[in-house]
């Protein structure tokens, strides 16, 4: 379970290595607090869907797995959306359609239909926690870079006298606007992937594997 947890953080990071779940990154990574909420929501839905799909693997025929997976992820996403609408209206307005869209998130479908298929519920839960945490951390990193460079601010939760926004001297007056636009997401993500790829041992090609 710990091994399943670890691989999602770095070696198989869903965002910076496997480029899964790009839709929310494009939509909500311009503000740190939005990225945190989205990452946490995805982590919770992934954990429930992955564990449930693993527990139900012997009960659901193969050709119906995708429908069942969508039903479980969809109901979790709808419940999360309703809870946000009720108790975090500002956040709900900003995340908008992207919370219900987690139903068809490629990371959730990949883990629930791929990994959970041949694993125990415990391993699937560990995998979901690892992948979800890896996704959350990568999303937070990208959001932090985008918000600092693109807006010159860091948005956190307002508490007491603290307004929730920290202005970065210099950048708040003249930010690099491109980074806060959609194109900026791909630029930052591209560099993040390059860093992850450099840090990992090079993957063997088919020819090298054949020789071995």
């Amino acid at each position: 379970m710990i091994q399943a947890f670890r691989k999602g953080l770095a070696d198989e990071n869903p965002l910076c290595v496997r480029l899964l779940g790009l839709c929310p990154v494009l939509a909500v990574s311009a503000r740190l607090i939005d990225a945190f909420a989205m990452g946490l929501t995805l982590l919770a839905i992934l954990a429930i869907t992955n564990t449930a799909m693993s527990a139900l693997q012997t009960h659901v025929p193969g050709r119906f797995r995708v429908f069942v997976c969508t039903a479980i992820a969809g109901s979790c996403a709808s419940a999360a959306d309703l809870l946000m609408q009720a108790y975090m209206p500002g956040l709900s307005d900003r995340l908008g359609i992207f919370v219900p869209l987690l139903t068809v998130n490629s990371l959730i479908l990949d883990r629930a239909l791929g990994f959970a298929k041949d694993s125990t519920p415990g391993m699937s839960f560990g995998d979901a926690l690892g992948m979800g945490t890896g996704y959350l951390l990568a999303l937070l990193g990208i959001a932090l870079i985008r918000e600092i460079l693109g807006s010159g601010t860091i948005t956190l939760v307002p508490i007491g006298g603290f307004s929730g926004t920290i202005e970065v001297p210099g950048l708040s007056q003249s930010p690099i606007r491109l980074v806060s636009l959609s194109a900026g997401t791909f630029l930052v993500l591209g560099y993040a992937k390059a860093v992850f790829d450099m840090a990992r041992p090079p993957a063997k090609t088919n020819r090298e594997e054949d020789k071995a």
Binding site: L56, H59, V60, P61, F64, F67, V68, A71, I72, G74, S75, C76, S78, A79, L82, L83, Q85, A86, Y87
Partner: peptide
């Protein structure tokens, strides 16, 4: 198999209904 899938779908619907009941007044 159909019965099991129907049961799973029912559980999913119940989850959404429960969330709806919990949040309706606040919304």
């Amino acid at each position: 198999a159909a019965g099991k899938i129907a049961g799973i779908c029912l559980a999913c619907i119940l989850l959404v209904v429960l969330a709806r009941l919990l949040t309706a007044s606040a919304i």
